[in-house]
Nucleic acid binder design. Structure first.
Length: 775
DNA sequence: GAGTTTGAAACT
DNA sequence: CAGTTTCAAACTC
C-alpha cells in the first residue's frame, strides 16, 4: 500500500506506527497496514503532537460482530480533551481516502467537519455534500451528507439534539430527532432499516473493516467520533461497497486530530448538548476552535464484498436532517436547496407525482452502472487527478444515485479504463447525471470558504460525469423497457425483472416494484421464483454447440448452433414470429420444442436449419470472434479471478449481483429495430454473487454487438453468472480447466451500440466467504 | 394508439 | 403434470 500519499503523510503517522498499539493492531490485521496518510490540507497545516496512534494505524478486524466502526480513542492523556469532555469545540474535518489496494487507487473523498462556532450554542456540522449516502429507503435513510459539493451545516440549537450529547449517551441509540438521525445513522441496529442494515452488513460481512477500538476509549468519545465520522465513514463504506463486490474493504478512520484554534482541551460539558461550557469564550474566539481530525478510509477491496445498500440515494433522508431548515444556518440554506434538487432528481422513486419530472427518473436505478468507455475513463481520470483527487483503481464502482452516482461513475470510469464494453444502463446514468451534477456544480462553485475546498474534491467527478451524460444522452433513445401493468414487474412476464435488472425510467410499467427501493421485495420474489424454477432466470437460449453437442459443430457459429433451453410451444405462429422464443432468440427450434407447424427460419424442430446462413446469419463474421470468445471453447468457463481483473483494470461497473442478460436480438426485425424481447436473459440470480468482473462482462460488453447479432451463451457459462448466491446451482465451475477467461474485449463494441437492453442489474452480494486481503 | 393475437408464465 | 388463467410482448390495423 505504498502510495504517494503515504509519503505525504506527516510525522504523525510514522510516529504512531511505532507505537505498541499500532504494532499490535498491525499484527492483528490481515490487511496490510495502511499508514495513515494525511493528505488533507488542514491536516498538513496542523501539528498533532499527540495524535492518537489509533487513528493513524489501520486496524483490521474480522469481527463480524463489529457492526460499527470503532475508533480508538486516544489513549494519550493529552487527548482526553477530545473526548466527551468537551464536545463543544470540536470541529472535525474528515478526509476520506479510498484506496484500492490492488491498484493503489486513492480517492480523496472529502471532509466532514464539525465546527463549534463561537456563538456557543450553535453546533455546526459541515458535511461533504459531494457524497451522497443513499439508503435506498427514504424512511430509513438518515440524512447523510449528500449532494455534491453542497455544504451541509447543521446547527444544533437544541442541546439534546446536539451531536455531543448524543454521543455521550450512546452512539447507538435511536434518534427520533431528524437532526440526530444523521448521527445515528448506521449506528443503531435498526432491523428494519435497510440502509443501516446495509451498512452493517457491509461492515460485518466485509469483516475487514478496521476497527478502532481503544481500550481506553470512552463512549462519549467514541460516539463523538462515530457520529462525526459517520457520514464519511458511511460514504466510504458505501463507496467501498460500490467499488465492487470483489474487494475487501478496509477502513481506517480518524487519522488525526487537529486543533487549530483550540486553546485548551475540550471540555465536554455533557449537558447542553455539546454546547460550550462557556459560550462567551467561544464567542471571544470568534469561534472557531477547531479540531480537525482526518479520517482516512482505506478500502481494501476484496471480492465478494457484500453490497446491499449501495444506493446512495438519500434525498429523503437529507430532507429529514435539514428539513427543519428554519434553524439552519446560512450554510444550510444552500444545502437545502440542493437537497431539494436532489430530491427532485430522485423523484421518480419517491416522487412520482412530483411535477418536477425533471428529476432524473432513472437515477439510482441503474445498478449496473455503465462502465465508461476507455476514453471516458481516461478523461475522467485526468480530471480527477488534476483536481487533486487521486483515483487509481481497477475496481469497478457501481453508480449510486444522484451526486454520488456521478462520483461513482467517475470513479468507475477511472477505475475501468479498459472497460469499454460494459455499459448497460448507460441511459439511466446519463439521465441521472444531467441533473444532479449540475445543481451540485453550481452550488459548489459558490462555495468560498477555504474549508469547503476539500469538499469540492469530487466536483471534477461530477462535472465530468455530467458532461459525459449529456454527451451520452443521445444514446439512450431506442431503449425499450417493459410495459407491465399488473405484474408489478415482479414476475417473469416483465422483461426487466426476468433479465435481472431494475426497471428504469424508460419503462412504462405501472406499480413497478422492480426498483432499487424495493430491492428486498425484488430479491425475495426472485428467490421465490427460483425456488420454483431454478432456471427461471437462466438464459433461455443456450449455445447448443456447448450444451447440446448434437446440434452441431463448433465451426458453426450460427444461431442454429444455439437452442432455446426449454423449447417453444408455438401453435399458431409457426415459429416465425417473435411470439416464438426460439425465433425471438434467433435460434432454431429443437427437439425439445413442442411447436406445431414449425417453420423457424433459424432451424426447424425436425433438425433442418435451411435458412441458416442466409437471413439468419446476417453478421456472422462480425460476431464470430465474439462468439468464440464466449462459447467456442466448450470447456471454457468464466474464470473468476479477482486479482487479474483488477490488475487488468477491467473493472466492470456491473452490480454485485451479476444478473445479466444477453441480448439476443433477431438478426432481422420486422421494423428494423431489435425485437422488444431481443435480449434474452443470459443470467440472473437474485442472490447472484457472481463477480461482476467475470462472466458478465463478457456478455455485457458484447451487448452492442449482440444487439445486432445473435448471441447465445453456453449453458455452462450462464450458471456461472447467475450463481452468486452460492445456491445449489453453484456447482458450476467458474474456472475452466484451461483457466481461460472469456474475453469480451475481442468484441470491440463501441459505446454507440450500448443503449438497448440496458437495464439495471439487481444487486445482491452475498457475504463474501473469505476476505483474504488482496495485495 | 388501440385492439388483437400469441405464447410464456403463473396458477390451480 | 396437465389444464386454465394471467400477463405482456408482438403484431395488426
Amino acid at each position: 500500500m505504498d502510495t504517494p500519499e503515504r509519503n505525504q503523510i506527516g510525522t504523525p503517522s510514522s510516529k504512531f506506527e511505532d507505537s505498541p498499539i499500532f504494532n499490535y493492531i498491525n499484527s492483528l490485521s490481515p490487511i496490510k497496514p495502511v499508514k495513515s496518510l494525511h493528505i488533507t490540507q488542514a491536516f498538513s497545516s496542523l501539528s498533532f503532537a499527540s495524535l492518537p496512534s489509533v487513528f493513524t494505524s489501520p486496524h483490521v478486524s474480522s469481527h463480524k460482530e463489529s457492526r460499527f466502526l470503532r475508533r480508538y480513542s486516544s489513549s494519550d492523556p493529552s487527548k482526553p480533551e477530545l473526548s466527551s469532555e468537551n464536545g463543544n469545540k470540536v470541529c472535525t474535518s474528515e478526509e476520506v481516502v479510498v484506496e484500492h489496494e490492488n491498484c493503489d487507487a486513492m480517492v480523496d473523498i472529502g471532509e466532514v467537519s464539525v465546527e463549534q462556532h463561537g456563538e456557543g450554542s450553535k453546533f455546526v456540522i459541515e458535511l461533504p455534500r459531494t457524497l451522497k449516502y443513499d439508503c435506498g429507503s427514504p424512511d430509513d435513510c438518515v440524512s447523510t451528507p449528500s449532494g455534491v459539493e453542497a455544504d451541509f451545516a447543521l446547527e444544533l440549537v437544541d442541546p439534546p439534539s446536539a451531536v455531543v450529547p448524543h454521543v455521550q449517551e450512546a452512539p447507538e441509540k435511536d434518534s427520533s430527532d431528524g437532526e440526530t438521525q444523521y448521527h445515528d445513522m448506521c449506528l443503531s441496529e435498526r432491523k428494519n432499516d435497510v440502509t443501516v442494515c446495509d451498512w452493517e452488513s457491509l461492515i460485518s460481512d466485509t469483516a475487514d473493516i478496521l476497527i478502532f477500538n481503544s481500550p481506553n476509549r470512552t463512549e462519549a468519545y467514541r460516539g463523538l467520533i462515530q457520529n462525526s465520522l459517520e457520514p464519511a465513514t458511511r460514504f466510504c463504506s458505501s463507496l467501498a461497497a460500490e467499488l465492487n463486490n470483489e474487494h475487501h474493504m478496509q477502513i481506517v478512520e480518524p487519522v488525526s486530530f487537529e486543533q487549530e484554534n483550540g486553546e485548551g482541551p475540550f471540555s465536554q460539558t455533557g449537558d447542553a448538548g455539546g454546547l460550550p461550557n462557556n459560550p462567551s469564550e467561544a464567542m471571544d474566539h470568534e469561534a472557531e476552535t477547531r479540531v480537525t481530525f482526518s479520517c482516512k478510509t482505506v478500502f481494501s477491496l476484496h471480492r465478494g464484498m457484500r453490497r446491499r445498500c449501495l444506493d446512495f440515494e438519500m434525498a429523503g433522508a437529507r430532507r429529514k436532517n435539514l428539513g427543519d431548515g428554519s434553524s439552519h444556518g446560512s450554510v444550510l440554506s444552500q444545502p437545502d436547496e440542493k437537497m431539494t434538487t436532489n430530491e427532485k432528481q430522485l423523484g421518480p422513486l419517491r416522487q412520482c407525482g412530483d411535477s418536477s419530472r425533471r428529476v432524473l427518473p432513472g437515477i439510482g436505478l441503474h445498478l449496473n452502472a455503465l462502465a465508461a468507455t476507455s476514453k471516458e475513463s481516461k478523461i475522467i481520470k485526468s480530471d480527477i487527478l488534476a483536481s487533486g483527487i487521486q483515483i487509481r483503481s481497477t475496481a469497478s464502482i457501481r453508480s449510486p444515485r444522484t451526486g454520488l452516482e456521478a462520483l461513482d461513475k467517475s470513479l468507475n470510469s477511472a477505475a475501468s479504463e479498459i472497460d469499454t464494453n460494459a455499459t448497460e444502463n448507460r441511459v439511466q446514468l446519463l439521465q441521472d447525471a444531467s441533473q444532479v451534477p449540475d445543481a451540485l456544480a453550481s452550488e459548489d462553485f459558490n462555495q468560498n470558504s477555504p474549508k469547503k475546498k476539500r469538499r469540492f474534491l469530487l466536483l471534477p467527478y461530477i462535472l465530468n460525469f455530467i458532461s459525459r451524460r449529456k454527451l451520452e444522452s443521445g444514446e439512450t433513445e431506442g431503449c425499450k423497457r417493459c410495459n407491465c401493468k399488473k405484474s408489478k414487474c415482479l414476475k417473469l412476464y416483465c422483461e426487466c425483472f426476468a433479465a435481472g435488472v431494475y426497471c428504469i425510467e424508460p419503462c412504462s410499467c405501472q406499480e413497478c416494484f422492480n426498483k432499487p427501493i424495493h430491492e428486498e421485495t425484488v430479491l425475495s420474489t426472485r428467490k421465490q421464483i427460483e425456488s420454483r424454477n431454478p432456471l427461471a432466470f437462466a438464459p433461455k437460449v443456450i449455445r447448443s454447440s456447448d450444451a447440446v453437442p448434437e446440434f452441431g459443430d463448433e465451426s458453426s457459429k450460427t444461431p442454429a448452433s444455439a437452442r432455446h433451453k426449454r423449447g417453444c410451444n408455438c401453435k399458431k405462429s409457426s415459429c416465425l414470429k417473435k411470439y416464438c422464443e426460439c425465433y425471438q432468440g434467433g435460434v432454431g427450434c429443437s427437439i425439445s420444442c413442442r411447436c406445431e407447424g414449425c417453420k423457424n427460419a433459424f432451424g426447424r424442430k425436425d433438425g433442418s436449419s435451411a435458412l441458416i446462413g442466409t437471413e439468419a446469419e446476417p453478421d456472422e463474421e462480425e460476431t464470430e470472434a465474439c462468439e468464440k470468445s464466449l462459447a467456442d471453447k466448450p470447456s471454457q468457463k468464466i474464470e473468476i479471478h479477482n486479482n487479474e481483473e483488477q490488475n487488468s483494470g477491467s473493472a466492470h461497473p456491473m452490480t454485485p449481483l451479476r444478473m445479466s442478460r444477453a441480448l439476443v436480438p433477431l438478426p432481422f426485425s420486422s421494423n428494423g429495430k431489435p425485437p422488444r424481447s431481443s435480449f434474452i436473459t443470459v443470467a440472473s440470480s437474485s442472490s447472484g454473487l457472481y463477480s461482476q468482473k467475470h462472466a458478465k462482462p463478457s456478455i455485457l460488453r458484447s451487448q452492442p454487438k449482440f444487439e445486432k447479432h445473435m448471441q447465445t451463451i453456453p449453458d455452462d457459462e450462464m450458471p456461472v453468472i447467475l450463481r452468486g448466491d452460492g445456491s445449489p446451482s453453484t456447482g458450476i465451475k467458474t474456472v475452466s480447466p484451461n483457466s481461460k477467461r472469456i474475453s469480451p474485449p475481442h468484441c470491440h463494441f463501441g459505446s454507440p451500440g450500448r443503449r438497448s437492453g440496458r437495464k439495471l442489474i439487481l444487486q445482491s452480494i452475498p457475504s463474501f466467504p473469505s476476505l483474504t486481503p488482496q495485495h
